[in-house]
Design a protein around this nucleic acid. Structure first.
Lengths: 161, 161
DNA sequence: CAAAACTACGTAGTTAACTACATATATCCA
DNA sequence: TGGATATATGTAGTTAACTACGTAGTTTTG
C-alpha cells in the first residue's frame, strides 16, 4: 500500500474507508472473543434504541445517518434474531414503532462492559498528536459550512481553470 | 445523526465510513463539473500505474490495498473505457502486465490540475486543530504496532472481565 | 526430476450500503 | 371537504467491496 499512502490527501476517501473496514472487522472478532452474538453493523441501531427508547423507522435512520431502506434491512436482521420488536403507531397508522425487546435489553446490559473496553481501546488508538475523532468532527464541521463540491467549484471559478 | 455523533469513539468506524462516502460522492461531481469522465474509485489504480509504470494485477492490488478480485474488476472497467492496456508477461506466463494506454496517459495529464485543486480543497477541509490525514497515519501506525483486536484481548485478560 | 507447495489470475456468490420507485396514510388549503 | 402535497414505510435493483474456490503456471525439494 505504498503509493496510496504516499499520495496523501488525494486518497483521503480511500484511506478513511480502509481504516473503517479494518476496525469493523476487528470489532466483529472482539464480540466473538467475548462470546457475544453481535455484529458491529448493528451497533448504531441498537445503541440508538437503547438511548432513545421507542422510535419510528425514519427517526432511527436519521439518528444513525443511514437511508431508510438500509435501516429497514438492519431492523429486519435484528428483529429476526429477536433483539427488537415493533408495533404500529396507533395515532399514525403509517408509522412502525421500534423498541428493544427484553432479550435486546439484556444483551445491551451484557455488552456494556465490552463497549466500555472497546471505547477505551479505540480511544488509545485514535488519541495521538492529532486526535482522529476530533479531526473527523472538525472536518465535518468544515464541510457543513461549505461542502467539498462547493469549495472545489469556487476554486475552479477563481482560478479560471 | 445525533446519537451516533454523541457516542463518540464507539461509532468511530461508522463515522469514518460516512465521511469517506461523502467525499467520494462529491469527488464524482467535481470530475463531472470539470467535464472529465472519471470516477473516484478508479483513482488508486490509475494513479498507481501513472507512478509506477507497468505492474501485474497482484502488484497493483498490494499498492492500493485492495484484494486482487476487487482490483481485477476495477481493471476491467478502466480497460473497457480504454484507459489501460495489458499483456502477458513473457518471462512468467501466469502474470498479466498492466500499463496506461496513450489515452490513459492523456487523461492523467488532463486531470493533473484537477487533482491539484482537489488536493488543495481536501487539505483545507482536513487541516484543523487536529489534522485528519495525520490522525489517520498516526492511528494506522498504532494499529500496525498492535491491532485493535490484540489490544482488546489484552485488556480482557488484564481486567479479567 | 516428479510431486508438493506456492503464486497469479480469474469467477461466482455474498454483503451492506445505495437510489429509484411504489403504496398507504396524514395534513393542508382553496 | 376533497384534491394536492407531504410523510412513512417498503420493495427492487444497483454497486463496490469482500471471501471462497478453481485453474494454470512456477518453484522447491526429497
Amino acid at each position: 500500500m505504498n503509493v496510496i499512502n504516499d499520495v496523501g490527501i488525494l486518497a483521503l476517501s480511500t484511506r478513511l474507508q480502509r481504516l473503517s473496514e479494518q476496525l469493523r472487522k476487528d470489532g466483529a472478532l472482539i464480540y466473538e472473543a467475548f462470546g457475544i452474538d453481535f455484529e458491529p453493523k448493528w451497533f448504531p441501531v441498537i445503541f440508538t434504541l437503547h438511548q432513545k427508547g421507542t422510535l419510528s423507522v425514519v427517526e432511527i435512520a436519521n439518528e444513525i445517518g443511514y437511508t431508510h431502506p438500509s435501516t429497514i434491512s438492519l431492523l429486519k436482521e435484528v428483529e429476526k434474531i429477536g433483539l427488537i420488536k415493533s408495533k404500529k403507531d396507533k395515532s399514525d397508522e403509517r408509522k412502525r414503532l421500534i423498541l428493544l425487546s427484553p432479550r435486546g435489553q439484556e444483551l445491551v446490559n451484557k455488552m456494556q462492559p465490552v463497549w466500555q473496553l472497546i471505547a477505551q481501546v479505540l480511544g488509545e488508538i485514535s488519541d495521538n498528536t492529532n486526535n482522529l475523532l476530533k479531526a473527523i468532527d472538525e472536518a465535518e464541521d468544515k464541510i457543513a459550512q461549505q461542502s467539498f463540491l462547493q469549495r472545489a467549484l469556487q476554486q475552479k471559478n477563481t482560478t479560471a481553470l
